[in-house]
Design a protein around this nucleic acid. Structure first.
Lengths: 339, 339
DNA sequence: CCCGATTCTGAAAGCGCTATCAAGACCCCG
DNA sequence: CGGGGTCTTGATAGCGCTTTCAGAATCGGG
């Protein structure tokens, strides 16, 4: 058996081995046209004997179709990002697609182009952009117009195919919940926003307005939990704060820790709620009241939407998911001595 | 300006526009051979005017070289996995490579082949396997022999290029630290192991043996923090437990929470240490004593190693990283009334 | 038993690029 | 001023597959 370890088998080898023509092998590969059962059997046998694996590069070149999609994101490691990507990958894998990951760290044009060009020159069927942060937003604008693209984010927008997680409504519900507990107002610690104002902040503001509560300028946190801790220290020094809505659970945990550092108890002295339902949120002491965000689900739907676009189906559709409020132990009625 | 929105420009279009031959354009693209400055300028102008972006598919087909690597992992979302992948992507992007992600959920051969074949038929330069769990190990065995491959894991092995994070030593140090605090022995809660015995368990056992301490059968946790909490409940009921070494920080947080649920304090009643230095470990109350694992660094080195292999350089090398012990507040001398 | 309709199959032509090779241009030195 | 380099360039031939397109084979109905 010569050629065992030599170069990988090509479609020509398979055709020769099976005693058929190259196009016939191609036909059984793609399933595009009918092939008689006996030839099909011969071809399949040859394929497995030769351990033939079609070259995606050649395939793409000839067919002008690809089974790869690119995911462009400003981050990959934090909870929301990682889960979203997991959802995309899962849905993609289920239908034989592979996903490429490209991280865009900066919104600067040149850096962006450099980071994206390697990926965009790959043969990809479409792009999914995680529009969670400024680099994501910038990346979205630089995707070539001829490529199908789906944006994933927390806020709806026009003229673009997207899957969204309705942050605004979730934030509004959560804030209203806090207000319902009797807090005069709710302070907000926001995570780095993707635009002038993210959905979480909008929802929070909206709930406050509806209730006629005072809207206090939000604190700005980074993605690092320790930035939340520092803000917790600030908040501890301000006796007017009785309830805090944090942009995500990790920041909320930092805030709680910062409050504890200063001898304040949650929820007895200050109520704190998070966002996302991070796996550790329920482990935290006190268990964090938060709102669940189905990132993986958004990722899956985003892929499904992209698949539709790739197949030339309608694309202006978008799917929104209803968030679920998780009432746990970190929020309670306000303490009389604060605020 | 016709063809503005029509099909993307090809190298032929560029050549025509610049008034040179196709190979000349190719030469400025690849930088493989010298081109006179004036022709180079012409070509570059044509490229940017036409917004030409070379087709990676055609390139791969003609040159038999690819700028894409595949990362195969059993997971993508948990801390260690996500960080490792982040490191790989970072190093890859720095030199113009793109990374493809493939998740292998099961170690079952058929499922594995199905999940991997989509990726392996892509034109990839090499593969990085996260050998953290059984699916990862199984995947490693099914990578075609002709493809450069690097394994990433916590334990060294022979005959394979790999980047490792020396878990065994780290676990040994951490266990020895606990023993040094005066604990008679240290209990272990292990995360799903990648083989008969993972490095963390080995290091723990080794430290115990060296100290002549009793080796108690480990508790088995899943990757879910809540499994740690359940184990915390078990541990609370066993008064002989005074120190617990958890396979990772997330499990440790679960264990601490489980202990708290039963009215036990950490570290006053029981000492608990984690592993990895998860971003929330220092936020936790008490701040978790743990050992830092530079997953991203391992990912970067893994990529560098793979790049060497791809370039035909020696590959048996492997880089190991020295873990760093982080002593915080979750471990203390044993309480006299327990154990 | 003939003819058009239906399957199935193979020859040939690319897909967009790189690799090879040989030809032309230019240089230097004896 | 001729011979042997060194550079730069273009013609040509694929890379491994899919896609026409047309021919061969089979079938059914009148």
């Amino acid at each position: 058996m010569p050629g065992q370890t030599s170069r990988p088998a090509t479609i020509t080898d398979v055709a020769a081995r099976a005693g058929v023509s190259v196009p016939t092998v191609s036909r059984v590969l793609t399933g595009a046209a009918r092939v008689s059962p006996d030839k099909r059997r011969l071809v399949e046998a040859a394929i497995s004997e030769l351990r033939f694996r079609p070259s995606a590069a050649a395939r793409v070149l000839a067919s002008r179709r690809s089974q790869v999609i690119a995911v462009i994101a400003g981050e990959t490691s934090r909870y929301g990002y990682a889960e979203t990507i997991r959802g995309v990958e899962e849905a993609a894998r289920a239908v034989g697609y592979t996903v490429m990951i490209t991280v865009v760290e900066s919104a600067d044009q040149d850096e962006l182009d450099r980071a994206m060009s390697a990926t965009l020159s790959q043969p990809i069927a479409g792009v999914i952009v995680l529009k969670f942060d400024p680099p994501g937003v910038a990346a979205l604008h630089r995707v070539p117009a001829d490529l199908p693209v789906v944006a994933l984010s927390g806020v709806r927008e026009k003229n673009i195919a997207q899957a969204v997680l309705d942050e605004t409504r979730a934030a509004e519900e959560l804030t209203a919940f806090l207000l319902g507990l009797g807090h005069a107002t709710v302070h907000h610690v926001r995570v780095p926003p993707s635009r002038r104002e993210d959905g979480r902040t909008t929802g929070w503001r909206r709930a406050l307005r509806k209730a006629g509560a005072e809207v206090i300028t939000p604190y700005d946190a980074t993605w690092e939990p320790r930035s939340g801790r520092a803000i917790g220290h600030e908040i501890a020094a301000d006796a007017s704060v009785s309830a805090v809505f944090c942009g995500n659970d990790e920041i909320a945990m930092g805030v709680v820790r910062g409050l504890n550092d200063q001898g304040l108890r949650v929820p007895e002295d200050v109520s704190v709620v998070g966002f996302d339902n991070h796996p550790l949120a329920e482990m935290w002491s006190p268990a964090l009241t938060t709102v669940e965000q189905d990132f993986a689900g958004m990722g899956r739907r985003g892929f499904d939407l992209l698949a539709q676009l790739v197949n030339g189906e309608d694309g202006r559709t978008f799917s929104s998911e209803r968030p679920r409020l998780l009432v746990r132990d970190s929020a309670a009625a306000p303490a009389p001595q604060r605020g």
